[in-house]
Write a protein that binds this DNA or RNA. Sequence first.
DNA 1: CCTATTGTTTATCGATCACTAAAAAATAAC
DNA 2: GTTATTTTTTAGTGATCGATAAACAATAGG
Lengths: 236, 236
Amino acid sequence: MAHSSRTTAAASPRPRGRQPTFDRDEALETALELFWRHGYEGVSLADLTSAMGIAAPSLYHAFGSKADLYREVLRRYGSSGGMKADEVGAAASSYDAARQMLERGIAAVTMPGKPLGCMVSSGMLMASPDHAELAAELKALRASLRHALQKRIQRDIDDGVLPRATDAAALARLVTAAMQGISVQALDGAKAAELLPIVAAVLAAWPGRDGGKPTSRQTRPASARTPSHRAAPRAR
Amino acid sequence: MAHSSRTTAAASPRPRGRQPTFDRDEALETALELFWRHGYEGVSLADLTSAMGIAAPSLYHAFGSKADLYREVLRRYGSSGGMKADEVGAAASSYDAARQMLERGIAAVTMPGKPLGCMVSSGMLMASPDHAELAAELKALRASLRHALQKRIQRDIDDGVLPRATDAAALARLVTAAMQGISVQALDGAKAAELLPIVAAVLAAWPGRDGGKPTSRQTRPASARTPSHRAAPRAR
DNA sequence: CCTATTGTTTATCGATCACTAAAAAATAAC
DNA sequence: GTTATTTTTTAGTGATCGATAAACAATAGG
């Protein structure tokens, strides 16, 4: 870690030496766009420096290494529309957490003008052993999101919102797997409107309506009661 | 295409020149293992030749190029447990096609002794522009599987097995997205038993029971009626 | 001014990338 | 044995990989 951190706010009095000629945030945004679109192994340092308009030593001085740059890009990407772990925990219900994760996820992986897919859901799934450490960090990121949802579900179970027999781990896997599949479909060109029915189908599997105790507090959109791919029931 | 093809069967009378010192099938199997585990960009030619125990010119003589080798590996991978497009079309029902795709898919992405995940579902999702052509071929492979399922669903709709209002495209997307998410989860270490509940949840979304006309011909396992993550209904 | 500090430019580094030309080795046909 | 054919071995190709040493430029503090 050789470069100085500028994380402290409150109007720095001005650095000592020469002024940087490039905007660090813009450079990060450029790196984000490249890594997002082509993956870690699909982007070379020459790609990065030429897109940023800087030379290699400047990049290394500012970011440390390609892997460190990717890590910083990942943190920046965290605030790109997708749901974060703490937001999952703060959701009004596990159902809402799942719905938001999927709906906001679809919006995030199909944003016009941005690369398709999700950096986390589809990032570094297969990689050279040389980058195993970075791949493990992404894997941990995916696991943390899944665990956050699982914990939120478990809380609903403990609170009696969901049936005691609910399998929190399985339910969390269902939702995160759906999100990951949605990312792949987006990468393959699916539009948001084509992906939304997936949300309805997944949410329709949510327990609590049949065997659960209370159901009053929950807010279920009509789309979850009657998934768009399913015909309206004639009788029940 | 400089190398001779040995595709014709029926006991070749013996080739003319020097005998190959390595088994072509074994070499392909080795390449499969490497590409499957690390992806196209994660495997170098040095990795391949050293694992195969041959020199680079032998590899190029036998397979043409790295990309061509990958293509041949992909064809070989096709018969690795996962469901193929023609099998989807030949299924007894679209429901069975979906169930088989997911169940056999889970088995395929969690095979002991084999690399985790699915080469097609999780392969080349992000890649360098240099490999865009190969990535497009994989994308087309994913699309063909999805279209095969969509066509099978549409046939059930036309035959009156599924309700007229069924959205075949959305339903096919649901299943293939689930499969792709399952592949990611497997790559992240999920066991088959942890993934099976996803199948039940997806199949539970299958139309035909409520609004569809006939339901007698369909075979629904108990797991689809009561997904394992959902509590058994007390009343209905 | 001088010194210290910071970021730049220039010119690489050795390693690895996918790939190949050329010669040698091994076999079959004759 | 000679020739033709095929595959191997040897020894590389130029390009690109991620990363850096060293010198230069630009700023602030004294």
